[in-house]
Structure formats: structure tokens, C-alpha cells
Write a protein that binds this DNA or RNA. Structure first.
Lengths: 193, 193
DNA sequence: GTCTATAGGCAGATAGAC
DNA sequence: GTCTATCTGCCTATAGAC
């Protein structure tokens, strides 16, 4: 997934800063003051662009999901065996972690019970779309022979997503991206050998 | 892992309530007021038992880790094939999730960057011990022939722990313990066959 | 051990000037 | 669009009575 591109507009810069704060600290552990200080504007100025934290959160998920889904489309459009596409999928997660960040929606999943309903719905949507995309890829891999797995493509897709999210979650306290790469490789190896 | 037993003493009841709050909402999303209201005492009363949130958090992790490790010892002491012990290990996680809770240390891992240093150290300790215990179990399973896996026992152990934590993380927004069970079963089947 | 009372700070949010 | 100023509420924490 491409990083958030540098945005000259204030609304976009707010999202850039807020996104990093949520991915590193969580939605409940950052404040408008944090963003304001980072951007050199006042808290009141932020409310002009995003009236409340809920609206800011929605915008964050929307942009993140859009960027992620675009990356999935890009991978899906390649002319390559499914196994190679699966590796590219794993790399999306590795890229996030290499910036010492958790997946935005993985972080929000932890805080799920404390979030406004609109955010909750958007989080589930993120995982639903990932699961559908990945299940389709796995089915393709079974056909082209590059991926072998037992059980349904849907269950396997869900397990891979869970495994990658969990590997990010556990690797971060160790501050070691290599640990994530190893875990992810172990997971993929078990599926594609 | 056995649930926290009902404790007549105030210090223990505080931990009971705080534990659920952290597992459901996170460390940064509960307050002394929440606990006080639940127990029918005042916030000031809590500070007598736990001077600050950091001390309360330490006590939470210590008790949780102790209970978890005791469950591991219990499983390890059984006369059973390693594969059966692995299933019992998975069940520890399933039991936590069936109470609509996240693993305490998994939740804290998400919030890692915002926590006091003593808590951070304790969280890593939890995962270290789990990994060592599980790696030993896997090695035993390889010897007794009940578990098959490629790569090192340590890497496989780490992937299993990550996968289980991630499966809890992702399953909770769906409010469906069955989803966790399926993911966990798929994970174990893929890694140990 | 638990209470009342309160301190001091920061949260999210708004009104209105510019 | 961004500011100053301010509101209200909740947070963690403490002092001191009982």
C-alpha cells in the first residue's frame, strides 16, 4: 500500500498526522491538541475541518481503506501466479509495520467497543473486503496450483488476515520488523508448500 | 485458564473489575470512576489499594500472567500427546474470547507505546514465556509424532501465538466466537500437519 | 479502609472576531 | 480558514476527617 502522499491542504495534513497517531497510540490515546501542536495550528482550527473526533475517525478509515483497496486492485491486476500476489499482500502489512505502525483497522479493532457506531461499521467493512479479496486470490491459487490449502478459501483468508494482524500486534512491543517477517513467512510457507 | 475467582477482598475485586474493563475497552479507555461505580465505593478508596493507574496495571498483568502460566503448567503436566495439549492451549484463548474479552496482554500490546515502562516490560514477559512454553510443546510433539511442522519450533510457536491473538482481535468486531474457533482450527491445521 | 472535598490538568467542543 | 477565549466535563491524584 502506498504511503499517504504529502498533501498541501490542511484537511489532508490533519489526516496524515492523525493517522500516524492512531496507528501508533490508538484512537483513545491522541487528542486534537496533539495534532494542533504537530501542525502549528490551534485546536479550534481543526474543528473547522473535522467537527468532532468521530468525523475525523470516519475520514481516517475511509482514506485508509481506499488506499488499501487500491493496492489490492493493483496486485490483483498483475499477471502473476497467485502465490506471488499473496506475497505482495503480505508486503502491504510489512510496509505498515516498518513505519512502527499497527494496521489502522487492526488498532481500531482493539478499541472497537469504545468507538462510535459509524466507525465500527467501517472497520468491519475493511475486514470484509479484505477477506473477500483474499479468498478470491486463494481460489485462484488453488486453480493455478501455486497455493495449496485445506478447508474453504474463506476460512483460510480469514486466518491469514488474523495471522498478519496478530503478527503486527505482537511484533511491535519487540520493536523488531524482522520478527513480523519471520512470522508471516512461516504462515505463508505453511500454505504454499 | 481459570476465570478470576470471586474475591471477597476489595483489592481483588478491584482487579476483577479493572481486568474486564481493560480486556473489553483497553487501558486508556477506562477510569477509576468506572471501577468505583461498579463496586459502589469512591475513587479515593481505590487509591488506597492502588496509588496510581500504573500500579493497578502492573497488578493486573502480574495476576493475569500468573493465572495463565499456572494453566500452562497444568496443561504441560498432563499425560497426553502434544497435539492434545496444543488444543488445550488454543482453548485458553477461546475461553477468554467467549467472555467477549480480548487477551489482556494482546489488548495492552496494541496500546504498548502509551504505557508506563514497567507495564511494557511485563507485557513482553508474558509473550516471552508463552513462546518458550509453546516452542517446548511443539518440539515434544515433533518427537512423539503428534505434531508436524516445518521450520523452527520457536518460529512456529510465535506464529501460533500471533495467529491466536489476531484471531481474537478480528473476531471481536463480529461478535462471533465461532469465527475465532474456525480461524484457530484453520491455523493449527495449516501449521501442524 | 473508606469517606468528603478539592486540586490541577487536559479532554472535546463552541462562539465570535478577524 | 484560522484565531482567541472560554465552557463544561472528566481525568488522576491528594489531604485530611472518620
Amino acid at each position: 500500500m502506498p504511503r499517504a502522499k504529502s498533501t498541501p491542504d490542511t484537511a489532508g495534513r490533519i489526516l496524515d498526522v492523525a493517522e500516524e497517531l492512531v496507528q501508533v497510540r490508538g484512537f483513545n490515546a491522541f487528542s486534537y491538541a496533539d495534532i494542533a501542536a504537530e501542525l502549528g495550528i490551534t485546536k479550534a482550527g481543526l474543528h473547522y475541518h473535522y467537527p468532532g473526533k468521530a468525523e475525523l475517525g470516519e475520514a481516517l478509515i475511509d482514506r485508509y481503506t481506499g488506499r488499501f483497496n487500491a493496492a489490492l486492485e493493483h496486485i490483483g491486476g498483475r499477471d502473476a501466479p497467485a502465490a506471488a500476489k499473496l506475497e505482495a499482500y503480505v508486503q502491504l502489512y510489512a510496509d505498515v509495520l516498518s513505519a512502527r505502525r499497527m494496521c489502522l483497522c487492526g488498532m481500531l479493532a482493539a478499541e472497537y467497543q469504545t468507538l462510535p457506531e459509524e466507525l465500527q461499521t467501517a472497520i468491519v467493512g475493511f475486514f470484509d473486503h479484505n477477506e473477500a479479496w483474499l479468498a478470491k486470490l486463494l481460489a485462484q491459487g488453488r486453480r493455478d496450483g501455486s497455493i495449496r490449502f485445506e478447508g474453504s478459501a474463506k476460512d483460510t483468508a480469514r486466518m491469514i488476515i488474523s495471522g498478519l494482524e496478530g503478527a503486527m500486534l505482537v511484533a511491535r512491543p519487540y520493536g523488531d520488523p524482522g520478527q513480523f517477517r519471520k512470522s508471516a513467512a512461516t504462515l505463508v510457507a505453511a500454505l504454499t508448500k
